[in-house]
C-alpha cells in the first residue's frame, strides 16, 4: 500500500488549504478577542467583595478550565443547533481561553502593590474609579506576551473546529485527503503551515517578554 509523496497533490490542495487558513485565522483572532475581554471580566468578578459573585464565578471557571475543549465544542454545537458553527467555535474557544487569560490578569492585579489600593481608599475613590484609573492600567501593562502566547496556543487548537463542521484549514485538508486519498500530503502541508505561522510569532512573543522584563 505504501506510496511515495505526491507533489501534484500538494500543489493541487494548497489553494484549498489557504482558503481554509483564512477561516482559521479569523477564528483565532476573534476567539482571542473574546478571551481577552471575558478573561478580564472574570478576573475582576473573581475579586468581587460579595461571595455570591466571586464563588460561582470561580467554580464555573475551574470547571471550564479542567474539562476538554473538544467536548465543550461538540456539546455546544449539539445543543445550539440553530447557531452557526463558526460562531459557536469562536465563543467556545473564547470562553475556554478566558479561563486561562483571567489567571494572567489575576496575577497582574495581585502584582499591584497594596499601597495603591490603600491610596485609593485614602482619596475616597469609587470602586469604579479605583479599578479604571489605578488598578487596571497597572495590572494590564505586562499581560501582552502571555495573551499572545495563548493566542498561538488557541491557533493550534482551531482544528477542533473542523469537528463541528467549520470549514477551516484542517477541515479542507481532511476533505481533500478523503476525496483524493492523499492524507500524507495534506496533513504534512497543514502541519507545516501551522509551524510556519506559529514559530515566528512565538519568537516574537519571547522577544516581547524579554523586553518587558519577565
Amino acid at each position: 500500500m505504501s506510496q511515495t509523496f505526491d507533489w501534484d497533490a500538494v500543489r493541487d490542495s494548497l489553494p484549498l488549504l489557504l482558503q481554509g487558513f483564512r477561516v482559521t485565522l479569523l477564528a483565532t483572532v476573534l476567539g482571542t478577542l473574546v478571551a481577552a475581554v471575558l478573561g478580564l471580566a472574570i478576573a475582576v468578578a473573581g475579586r468581587a467583595p460579595s461571595r455570591w459573585v466571586s464563588v460561582p464565578v470561580k467554580t464555573v471557571m475551574e470547571f471550564v478550565r479542567a474539562t476538554p475543549l473538544l467536548v465543550q465544542l461538540v456539546g455546544a454545537a449539539a445543543v445550539f443547533t440553530s447557531v452557526e458553527p463558526l460562531t459557536i467555535g469562536i465563543v467556545v474557544l473564547g470562553i475556554h481561553y478566558a479561563t486561562y487569560t483571567s489567571e494572567v490578569y489575576r496575577a497582574g492585579i495581585d502584582g499591584v502593590p497594596k499601597g495603591q489600593w490603600e491610596a485609593c481608599r485614602a482619596l475616597s475613590l469609587t470602586p469604579r474609579r479605583t479599578w479604571q484609573a489605578v488598578i487596571l492600567p497597572q495590572a494590564v501593562r505586562n499581560v501582552l506576551p502571555a495573551l499572545g502566547n495563548y493566542a498561538i496556543s488557541m491557533f493550534k487548537e482551531t482544528p477542533f473546529l473542523a469537528v463541528i463542521t467549520v470549514q477551516e484549514m484542517v477541515f479542507e485538508a481532511r476533505k481533500y485527503g478523503t476525496d483524493h486519498f492523499a492524507y500524507t500530503e495534506v496533513f504534512t502541508l497543514a502541519g507545516l503551515v501551522f509551524l510556519v505561522a506559529s514559530y515566528p510569532t512565538s519568537l516574537l512573543m519571547r522577544k516581547l517578554e524579554k523586553r518587558l522584563g519577565h
Partner: peptide
C-alpha cells in the same frame, strides 16, 4: 521541540493515523 510544539497536536495525531499507513504501509 519546536517542530512538535509548532505543528499542532491535532495534525500530529491525524498524520500518525491517516498519513503514516499511506506513506509507510
Amino acid at each position: 521541540v519546536e517542530f512538535f510544539r509548532g505543528t499542532s497536536l491535532y495534525i500530529q495525531l491525524f498524520w500518525l493515523y491517516y498519513a503514516m499507513p499511506q506513506l509507510t504501509g
